[in-house]
Amino acid sequence: MEELNKNIHIVEKERKKHSKASEEYIHVQFDYAVDTWDGWVPVEYRRTGVSIKPDETARLLTYLNKIYDQMKPENHKAWMEKQEKFWAEEKSGAATTKSFFDSLAKGGWQCVECTLPNNPNWARRIQDLKEFGYTLATDTKRYCPHCKANKTHIIMLPIERGGATGNGYETWSPALRKRIIRVLNGIDVFEGTPNAHCLPDHKFSEIRWDDNTKAENPDSMTDEEIRQKFQLLTNQRNQQKREVCRTCFQTGKRGSLFGIPYYYEGTENWDTSIPQKGKEAEKGCIGCPWYDIQEWRRHLINDLKKANGEKYEYKGIRK
């Protein structure tokens, strides 16, 4: 088993938890020649594919060693240059979120009330940073000496976007993103109508991914592969779906749509014979309205028609 770097100290073995985001962290201290970093390192963090169980000691030690090496002060200049290039070339239109990055990149815990940019929707900006691949830790009850109260604080780890392990959210090129929208005819599956503001959404929620779930999305994906894997939702509905999937993951209760308790496969309860995470977990999502809204709508309409003695079969939204 790999040994833990002697300059890494696990301050608390009990994990810190951010239940709303389904994240867990380890409080560590990294000692470097010129500085010491004291903060929380995510060990359960779906956005970068990190999922280290409490009994996986060997994986934890290897992971912390990688984090420590990436966060060495001598690497910070090159890391910042890489991030500035990312923001200039790929996120030039995200100035508001960039201001949050700039604040967090200074290091240390940042209070959402008095340190981070003044923004009523700061949670959305933090969500954006996570979706861009940045690794953050959240303490919802850290004392702020300026506010003189417990406030939510955020800390950023200056490591590779997508995480130290190289796992994380699947990405796609701008060309493929446009093609996904074109193949799906720009149709918002929630409303069933075209919408120019829709974004590609993975049908299989990332909260149930593990280290082996992530796959490449090459520009050469076939139209059928795109239809099988993605649907189009507005950002608002995408966030709503994330909350539904998070609740399902934590409670075992699958979501509903429009308040209709209808599932064309299974029931409102997650099938306990199916794994919670990993590729096999996708089987447990089938039948949930949020997993494939078009398919759910097609089944519901056809069941209603059959109940009324109608023979016409609804094929669903044309794609």
Rank of each mutant, 00 (worst) to 15 (best):
N167C: 05
V183D: 01
L60Q: 12
M221N: 09
L184M: 00
K6S: 14
T48L: 03
T165A: 13
K85F: 06
D223C: 07
G39Q: 01
W79E: 14
D271S: 09
T152N: 09
I301C: 03
P289A: 07
K148L: 09
M71S: 11
K214E: 13
A175F: 03
A196I: 07
N119K: 15
R47E: 07
G162N: 04
V112P: 00
L304Y: 10
G49E: 05
H9F: 15
I286A: 08
K106L: 10
R318E: 08
E295W: 02
K277Y: 07
D35Q: 11
L60S: 10
A78D: 15
A94F: 03
I181Y: 04
V50Q: 04
F30S: 06
T247Q: 08
G186M: 02
K178P: 03
D292S: 11
C288W: 06
E313M: 12
P158I: 09
Q127S: 11
M221Q: 11
Q276A: 11
A175Q: 10
P261C: 06
D35I: 06
C144R: 06
P54C: 07
A78S: 14
D188Y: 01
M71N: 12
E160T: 14
R161H: 06
S22E: 00
E44D: 00
G192Q: 03
N302F: 10
W290G: 06
P218C: 08
E280I: 00
N238L: 03
D210H: 12
I260N: 10
I226N: 06
Y63F: 15
W87D: 05
M80H: 10
G39I: 02
Y291W: 15
D223E: 13
L233W: 05
D303T: 10
R318F: 00
K253L: 12
G192D: 00
F30N: 06
Y134F: 15
F30C: 10
G166H: 09
K82I: 02
N235D: 12
L64S: 12
